[in-house]
Amino acid sequence: MDHMIKIKSLSKSYGKLKVLKNIDLDVSPSEVVVIIGASGSGKSTLLRCINFLEKPQKGTITIDGKEVNHKTKNLHLIRREVGMVFQHFNLFPHMTVMNNVIEGLTQVKKVPHAEAIEQGKAMLEKVGMLDKADVYPAMISGGQKQRVAIARALAMNPQIMLFDEPTSALDPELVGEVLQVMKSLAEEGMTMVVVTHEMGFAREVADRVIYMDEGQIVEQGSFEQVFDNPQNDRTKAFLSHII
């Protein structure tokens, strides 16, 4: 089976600090990969490289058969295929919820406004936010903002969804509603790469769990393999901290 994401010997450094060291990672269509690791382990940087928000110095990333490296031009065409959800939502505060969701459709895909609204309604319906379509982001809760952010990314009909600690900035009681949306997305067969500390989500939804440390993939496998029977001492040490 062809891979949806194929990462080959990816390296990224900031000055002398090596953040990613020769990462290889393949993700199959409809696979849900959860990346865990301490802060500073490079997990967010890896995710941001898949979307080319960070440019790696070395290595290639192939998205759905299209290879990209640090020299590739027109990255914005490839980014359309990859949806991104951020820790701090990054909704556009000067636009209503609906306009946030249709911004990519009208500006990037040049979908006519009326049609974009229809699609936007469907996306907001999907994340349970249709009733807030006409309000501004400042008026809704963190969990609601993140659901809108997911709808905004989904509206572009991406092949892949990336989640960068999507619940880390939320009050505990709001985490569930976001994870629920992500879970139903996974059930629909979306290819997902998720950086998270939510171990419950990893257990329930992840096809594969990756543990990263110091810019390397130290351990990977099913949730049970990684959690119940870690092979690497660093993984064991990390897990003993979080459980």
């Binding site: 928000l53 914005h76 991104m84 556009f92 000067h94 911004e103 990314a153």
Partner: peptide
Amino acid sequence: IDRGQKEAGISLGMTGGQVMKRIILPQ
């Protein structure tokens, strides 16, 4: 303007110019 605004625009597939005009400048 928070850097995340630019990143959100870019990750929707907008060009640098679109992000400036639609996202950054109005704010």
